Computed example of a mutant assay.
Amino acid sequence: MRSLILASLLGATALPVLAQEVNIYSHRQPELLKPLTDAFTAETGIAVNTAYVDKGMTERLQAEGDRSPADLVMTVDVARLGELKDAGVTQAVEDEALAALPANLRDADNQWFGLTTRARIVYAHKERVADGEVTTYEDLADPKWKGRICTRTFTNDYNVALTAAFLAHHGAEATTAWLEGIKANLARKPEGGDRDQVKAIWAGECDISLGNTYYMGQMVNDPEQAEWANSVRIVFPTFENGGTHVNVSGMAMTKAAPNRDAALKLMEFLVSDEAQRIYAETNHEFPVVEGVARSELVQGWGDFTPDDLALTEISKLRPEALTLIEKVNFDG
């Protein structure tokens, strides 16, 4: 009888833990998050459900309101995180583990938190571009690059963020001249993604391109793209009065958050050493937690000094940056 009562009590206490869940709306493909969510579930018994929302995440959360099933949003680019906050679909989270993140990689009001960083770098052909030939973002507007630059559209979030950072460093007039200079140096009309630009370099269509660091990790591990990756090297340009531009992938708790306690546990897990190591090894991104090493592959790309410009400032300047990009008709 005692055994039956004990078993019953254990079952009663275990059921709520096993029944807990966290629901995520993600701009990132679920397979990129699966190693992290699997590790979290193994540690806590809390199930994680991920819905891939490619477009319209803010509008979806606004339409769902308090009825939203989403507890967390996970996305890339500080502009998207800022958009979610400004739309009023997230809530502040006061937590010791999250507050320990670097101040420039989290929202001042604790509405969103960076999980990884990635640098916006230059891919340069190993033979056609000499060492030291490009060292700054300002260099990209130099006429010596005429007909040698490829890029995805500049209205893409990654390039808008870079332009906003340039704007913060140099002001509107200089940023306009910079955009016009790069446009004049293009080898072709902006198109495709970052990896497509590396393919174009490999094919001889251009010599340099802008791209995010982690794409190199994805390409070298893809049999169809490894040859493209091996044709280029990574260059970490800087602003003339700053460092290398970085952006984030990040998370925020939704205003509705029906499973708030479980969601907070997942947020705390994602900034743990274990989760940061998983990020580093599987997604080829830079950890945000001090003391967690980059992957061996990423370490091989070399060291750089990240720009110390607060990401919140970049987010604020995004609308003006987009206006300047459209003013020069960069993608036209």
Rank of each mutant, 00 (worst) to 15 (best):
T117I: 11
D95V: 03
D77K: 09
A70H: 04
L98G: 04
A79I: 12
G88Y: 07
Q91Y: 00
I121L: 13
K126T: 13
V129C: 04
V122G: 03
D107A: 09
R60C: 03
E127C: 07
G114V: 03
D38F: 01
A87S: 15
D54A: 12
A103G: 05
T50G: 06
T90H: 06
A51N: 10
K85S: 13
A103W: 04
A103L: 09
Q91C: 00
P102S: 08
E94V: 10
Q111C: 12
R67A: 15
G45S: 04
E43G: 01
V78M: 02
D71H: 05
R128Y: 07
T117Y: 08
M74P: 00
P102E: 10
T44W: 01
E127G: 10
A42Q: 14
A124Y: 10
V73W: 06
D71W: 05
A79S: 13
V129R: 00
M74S: 02
D66K: 13
A63V: 11
A108I: 05
Q91A: 12
A63E: 14
L115R: 05
A119D: 10
K55P: 03
D38E: 13
S68V: 09
A87H: 09
D66Q: 13
Q62E: 15
E83Y: 06
Y123K: 02
R118C: 09
M57C: 12
D109Y: 00
V76L: 12
V48R: 04
L101P: 08
A79P: 00
A42M: 01
T41W: 01
T41S: 13
A47W: 00
N49Y: 11
A47I: 00
E127D: 15
A97F: 01
V73D: 02
